[in-house]
């Protein structure tokens, strides 16, 4: 038997007895960022594929949520900082090896892009909108002229944003649960799924709803595959990763993960989407809210459980 004790009584706040440095802010931000990324990806994709008329809500209206979500997410990030007045230090350097650094820079690109995209479609909500100043009108003309290029840039940066929400965690080799590169694609898929769910929830077009419900169904399938893959990887890995996986396989996170994330957040909405395919009428808000809640829950559970997984003691 082996027992290790810190006999000098180390009890550093937020570090002992288990790491507790990130609270609600980081997972909430990851959810908001992932959702915004999903919405922007579909807006850009539908526009690039010339589906502007077929998917009017995805391209023109739902993207109005993105800047709101991103700014709320940035506020969460700011609340998370312990040394808040120095936050601008993020933008005095580029650290390629630090996901947090390039994530901060990506946000600096994506947030204005989402605002520009929304501004281009402001007449969807205010048909008589007038930009008043000539330079703003000129700017609108310019952006409209290069809208396709804008869509491509937005697509690429929002995919990076979606992946980054997962990579942020997987860069930490000290926390075995996070230290898997599957988190990148998993969080991207979860963000895309949430984005599709948001479109399904808001759209008033029947065809668009049916289309994005199918898209969501495919992404949910991919998510289930990635989650299975993640646990297979853990179970075939070292002892620390087996113990990390056990937090979800019998440990304290088992019930919330399998009930709220996998069953209610993935399996049930998938079944409802399939029912919809066979012409049973399901209120769109039900699968959408379930997907959104599951996506939020996934971030919270991975964030909290990851902080409990460790090498030491």
């Amino acid at each position: 038997m082996k027992e290790e004790l810190i006999i000098s009584g180390r009890m550093n706040p937020y570090v002992d007895p288990t790491l507790n440095i990130w609270h609600w802010q980081i997972p909430l931000y990851l959810f908001l960022g992932g959702l915004a990324a999903g919405i922007l990806v579909f807006a850009a994709l539908s526009y690039i594929r010339g589906r502007e008329e077929a998917h009017p809500w995805a391209v023109k209206k739902v993207p109005f949520l993105a800047p709101v979500l991103l700014v709320a997410g940035l506020a969460c990030l700011f609340f998370d900082l312990n040394h808040k007045l120095f936050f601008w230090r993020l933008y005095t350097t580029v650290k390629l090896q630090s996901p947090m650094s390039w994530g901060a820079w990506v946000l600096l690109v994506v947030t204005p892009l989402s605002i520009v995209w929304s501004a281009l479609h402001i007449r969807e909500f205010f048909p008589n909108w007038d930009w008043k100043y000539t330079w703003l009108k000129e700017a609108e003309k310019f952006a409209n002229k290069y809208k396709l290029a804008l869509a491509w840039v937005m697509l690429i940066y929002s995919v990076i944003l979606g992946v980054y929400t997962g990579i942020l965690f997987s860069a930490f080799n000290a926390r075995p649960l996070w230290n898997t590169s599957i988190l990148g694609p998993l969080f991207l898929a979860s963000g895309l799924s949430a984005g599709a769910a948001a479109i399904v929830m808001f759209t008033r077009s029947k065809e668009e709803r049916a289309y994005f419900a199918r898209v969501d169904l495919i992404i949910i399938g991919i998510e289930l595959f990635l989650i299975t893959h993640m646990f297979m990887g853990f179970m075939a890995s070292t002892q620390v990763q087996i113990e990390a996986a056990n937090l979800f396989l019998g440990g304290p996170y088992t019930a919330p993960f399998w009930i709220f994330v996998v069953f209610l957040g993935l399996v049930v909405p998938a079944i409802l989407d399939v029912l919809e395919l066979f012409d049973y009428h399901v209120p769109a808000i039900v699968p959408s809210l379930l997907v959104l809640a599951g996506s939020l829950m996934l971030r919270f559970l991975i964030s909290f459980a990851g902080q409990e997984s460790r090498y030491l003691y």
């Binding site: 937020y14 570090v15 790491l19 440095i21 990130w22 998370d80 900082l81 312990n82 040394h83 808040k84 120095f86 936050f87 230090r89 993020l90 630090s98 947090m100 860069a171 930490f172 080799n173 000290a174 926390r175 902080q307």
Partner: peptide, 10 residues
């Protein structure tokens, strides 16, 4: 230092 906690987690 902005106190983001990344180093503590790492």
């Amino acid at each position: 230092c902005i106190g983001c906690g990344a180093c503590i987690a790492s």
